Simulated scan of single mutants.
Amino acid sequence: MGQDFARLHHIGHVVSDMAQAITLYERLGFVVPPPSCPAMPLHEGTAPRPFGAANTHADFPRSFLELVTCVKDSDTDGLPADAHLVPLQAPPGLLPHLVERINETSANVAAFLQRFEGLHILMFSSPDIDAAAARLTATGVRHGGVNTVRRAAPPGAGTPVETVRYLEIDGDEPGGRRGSVAEGRVGVVADLDPDIQGARHLDHPNGAVDLVEAVLCVADEELTTVRDRYTRYLGHSARPQGPAQVLDLDGAALTLVPASGLAALLPGEQPATLPALAGYTVAVRDLSLTRDLLHRNGLPTRETPSGDIFVPADAALGTAVVFRQAALQS
C-alpha cells in the first residue's frame, strides 16, 4: 500500500442553506460550530462583506466532516446570524491571486450544487504530501500542485496559526474544471496536527469518533475505469466485496459501488446522478445509544446488511449518513 495516502481526511457536504444544514447535523448528534466565511470590502473604505464559500466542521481526532455553501454577491441569507467573517489579509501583490482562488472554489461549489445537494468533496490524509504530489505526477495524475494556507488556530492550541497544505486532482475530461473530477473535488491534505485538532470540540452526543468510509456510486460500465483511477491516486489495489470494489486505508475505506449494487449496500438508496458520492460512515462508541438519539430527534433510520444504521439521503440533504460500531481498542 502507498504510504503517502494514509486515511480519510474529510468529506465535504455541499448545501444550499448553511443554517438548515447545521440544524440537521445537530439532530444527527454532531457538534458543529458557527461557520466561517472570507470577507473583504467591496469598495475602499467600506466594511468587509462575505463572499466565496462558507464552511464549518464536525471534528474528530484525525478527520472531520465539512459543511460548505456558496455566498452569492454578499447575500448572507443562507448563513446563521453567528457566522464568523474572516477578513482577507495578504500582501497587496498576493491578494488578487487569493481572491481568484476563493472565487474559483466558490464557482466549483456552485457547480456541485447544480448537480445535486449532497457530498461532493473527498480528501485523503497524507503524512508526506510532497511525496504524494511527486508520485501522482509520476503516474500521470494531473493536479494543481501543493497549496499552503494559514489560518488562526483554535483557542487552547499550542500555536496561534494553523498551516494547511493540500492539493486538488484535476479531471481528464474535456472542459473539466481545475481542481475537480467527475464526482467532485478530490485531493489530499497533510495530516491534521494532533495538538491543534485536540483543541477543537471532539466530543459529540452521537458518540462519533472518526470518519471511516466514503461510498462512491458509479455507472456499472464505469466501475473498472473508476477503480483503476483511484488505484493510481492511492497507490495500491482494490479488493472485491460483493458488487463493490474497496480501497482500504488506515482504519477506513473508499467503497466503489456500481449503481446496480447500491441498494444492496445501502437499502433503499438511489444515486442522485452518476458518478456520485452517495454516503459516508462514521464510527461511534455505542451504536445502540446513537440509534436512540436519532430516534429521539425524529430522524428515520435503516439498517445495512452488515448491521450499520443510516439516515437515508432524502432525510439528510442528499447524502446517506451511516453509523458503525467502533472497533474495540486492544
Rank of each mutant, 00 (worst) to 15 (best):
C37I: 13
L289E: 15
T290R: 07
A214K: 09
L113C: 10
A21S: 07
A263M: 03
M18V: 07
P243Y: 10
A313F: 12
V71I: 12
I102T: 13
L249H: 09
R151H: 10
T301D: 08
T290E: 08
Q325N: 08
A326I: 06
G298T: 08
A320M: 11
D250E: 15
R200L: 09
V226R: 14
S306A: 15
D82M: 10
G93N: 08
Q270M: 12
H143S: 03
L299T: 02
A252Q: 09
L249R: 03
R296Y: 04
E162P: 02
L94R: 12
T273W: 05
P300Y: 02
P258D: 12
Y233I: 12
R239I: 15
V86W: 02
N206C: 14
V186T: 12
N206F: 01
G261Y: 02
R296V: 12
I309R: 08
P34V: 07
T273G: 10
R62Q: 15
F112P: 00
D128A: 11
L136D: 06
L328H: 06
L85D: 06
A315T: 01
V284W: 10
P205A: 03
V161F: 08
S106Q: 14
Q329H: 06
N297E: 04
I22Y: 07
V164G: 03
V181H: 06
R185G: 04
G298M: 12
V161Q: 09
V246N: 13
D220C: 11
T301M: 10
S306V: 14
A190D: 09
R302Q: 13
V189M: 07
L211V: 01
V109Q: 04
D193I: 00
V164I: 14
D228P: 07
G242C: 14
F112A: 15
V212W: 00
A278K: 05
I102K: 10
L249K: 03
S180F: 01
P41L: 09
G298S: 08
D220G: 06
T105R: 15
L266I: 09
V321Q: 07
A132L: 07
D191H: 05
V99I: 15
G279Y: 05
T225I: 01
H43F: 14
V321T: 10
E213W: 07
G176Y: 00
A54G: 01
D228C: 11
P267D: 06
T148V: 14
T225N: 06
L299E: 00
L299I: 06
V32W: 02
A253M: 13
P243D: 15
F5V: 15
P194K: 00
L28H: 00
G29P: 02
V86E: 11
G144M: 02
